[in-house]
């Protein structure tokens, strides 16, 4: 299974202290990558790192609140230092997913969603992709949502921010592809994460609309991210991989 082996690669996963990010960090480490676990909550981040190390993997925590652009640049710098001068894989996973009527969103909330879901990946790729290109290659995976692919009442703000991220995938695929950097999207459907606790009813209702009839586990999203990050996906570029139990297909 050489094509899934990530030994020697440095992977930065944002929002990796819980949920899909934590599952992705664990899986990439299991496949041999040195994983940089980025997030706000140091206690949770250290727990993720400890669990990876206890299983023989290599990981470090990097504290980062990506809602500010100077923090994004700092994360890129610190991650490169911790990675021994390189980041080979970037997983743009950090995000917020508020729901609510459009007329009730305040300017501060709107800015916060776009700061984290759009601007943070934008600046992070700007800071890391050129160095990937100089080294001859790299892989970027943007974590989006099925809510960017069809209209859902109450998710105008969230869905539109992720639709912007989907377009960044295509633009970056064209921009950095000729220099060896692969950029792809994973679009999860309803997924059982810590962040969804208390929203189980809404999630089950959403899951029931998909052919699979159930919500995903974070590990199932992580598998798709790990596939796109590795050499097995060496010719996959600008792709949009829905991991939603078939919801957007029907």
């Amino acid at each position: 299974m050489d094509s899934v082996d990530l030994t020697g690669r440095v992977a930065l996963v944002t929002g990796a202290t819980s949920g899909i990010g934590a599952a992705t960090a664990a899986l990439l480490a299991e496949r041999g990558a040195h994983v940089l676990v980025a997030g706000r909550d140091a206690a949770r981040g250290r727990a993720v790192v400890t669990a990876i190390r206890e299983r023989g993997g290599k990981a470090d925590f990097v504290a980062a609140d990506l809602r500010a652009s100077d923090a994004v640049r700092r994360l890129a710098r610190e991650a490169s230092e911790l990675g021994g001068g390189r980041v080979d894989i970037l997983v743009n996973n950090a995000g917020v997913y508020p729901a609510g009527p459009t007329e009730e969103a305040t300017p501060i909330e709107v800015d916060a969603v776009y700061d984290l879901n759009v601007k943070a990946p934008f600046y992070l790729v700007g800071a890391l992709a050129p160095a990937m290109a100089e080294r001859g290659g790299g892989a970027i995976v943007n974590v989006s949502t099925m809510a960017a692919d069809y209209g859902i009442s109450g998710l105008a703000l969230y869905g539109s921010s992720k639709a912007a991220l989907n377009q960044l995938t295509r633009a970056w695929a064209a921009e950095y592809g000729p220099r060896g950097v692969r950029v792809n999207t994973v679009a999860p459907g309803p997924t059982r994460t810590e962040g969804m606790e208390g929203m189980n009813e809404a999630m089950d209702a959403a899951a029931a609309q998909a052919p699979a009839g159930r919500a995903a586990e974070p590990e199932e999203i992580a598998e798709a991210i790990a596939y796109l990050a590795g050499d097995a996906a060496g010719f996959v570029q600008g792709a949009h991989l829905a991991v939603d139990g078939g919801r957007t297909a029907v």
Binding site: A212, E220, A224, Y227, V236, G246
Partner: peptide, 13 residues
Amino acid sequence: GASYITGDNLIVS
């Protein structure tokens, strides 16, 4: 690993 992927078209281009 693809247990939640169905109805999808994976473009490898």
